[in-house]
Simulated assay, not measured.
Amino acid sequence: MKWQVRYALENIGGVRGVTSAEPVGDEAIRITTQDLPDIMAAISAAETIDAGLATRYHEEYPEIEFLCGYRKTCVWEGGAIRYLEDNRIGWGSIGTLDSAIPEGNVSTAAHKDFFFSDRLIRQIRSVTNVEREFDRIHTLTLANGRTLRTGMIMQYEPTADAVRSLWDRFGPVDIAWNINPNGNPTQNAIDAGRELGCEVMKWDALKALLKNG
């Protein structure tokens, strides 16, 4: 049993409706609940989950309904997300799994940090195509032909370092989107974005930009 599985078992035991959980092999757990069929989840300690790794977990554990990236720093590539969703396998953090179990939607769950923001941009009619490169990076094509590369920043009040870190890790973006609804980017973050060549903004400003092109 690998370390991330041990921690996952300790965590899952406190989730509402869970009656027991046990390891399956080195990197998966089987979860028993009060009212639903057993759930199998693979638990990964990888820093990055790509399509190849997602496929490997699915081949090793064909019954999995959820792939968990246990590390808080885990990054999901777009190919992995598409593979998992095409095969009706949920994906995301341990918090995502915890939330999905009582709701009974483990196999369709998506990373809770990014789910609502991803859905927001897909509801804008002037956005004609959405390419998800990573869990937090989208390239959007607008009705007028313009493309925008957006990157989500989760921090409550993003700093200049948060903007630069996003740029360094994922490459240039047009928009650094502060998706936390309760905070606002600092002036240093806005200035850092301008220096790099991107705008730092909240949802209302991004929505207006997407609608107006």
Rank of each mutant, 00 (worst) to 15 (best):
T96W: 04
L84I: 06
D98A: 15
N105H: 12
G95D: 09
A109E: 01
R88E: 07
A80N: 03
P102I: 02
D98R: 13
G104E: 04
A100C: 11
I94F: 10
P102V: 06
W91K: 08
T108F: 02
S99N: 15
R82H: 12
D98K: 13
G92S: 03
G90E: 01
A100N: 06
I89E: 00
I81P: 03
P102Y: 01
I81A: 11
G95I: 06
E85N: 13
S99Q: 15
S107T: 04
G79D: 11
V106Q: 00
A109H: 02
G92N: 03
A109D: 04
E103A: 14
E85Y: 02
N87G: 03
I101L: 06
L84N: 05
T108D: 11
P102S: 07
S93R: 05
G79L: 09
S93D: 12
E103W: 04
L97M: 13
I101D: 04
A100Q: 05
A109K: 01
D98E: 15
W91N: 11
V106W: 00
R82F: 11
A109P: 07
T108I: 04
G79I: 01
L84A: 05
G79M: 11
I81K: 12
P102C: 08
A100H: 07
W91H: 10
W91T: 05
I94W: 05
L84M: 09
D98F: 14
G104T: 00
S99E: 15
N105G: 03
G104A: 02
T108N: 03
G104Q: 03
G104K: 02
A110C: 15
W91V: 06
S107W: 03
I89F: 00
T108M: 11
G95T: 13
V106K: 01
L97E: 09
S93Y: 05
N87V: 03
W91D: 06
G104V: 01
I101T: 08
L84P: 04
I81C: 07
A110R: 15
I101F: 05
P102W: 01
S107E: 05
R88Q: 10
I94H: 07
T96P: 09
V106D: 00
A109V: 05
I89V: 08
P102H: 03
E103Q: 12
I89Q: 02
V106G: 00
G79T: 06
I94A: 11
E85T: 14
L97Q: 13
V106L: 01
S107Y: 07
R82C: 09
G95E: 12
I101G: 08
A109M: 06
L84G: 10
D86H: 12
E85P: 08
N87I: 02
A100Y: 05
R88F: 05
V106S: 02
G104D: 01
G95N: 12
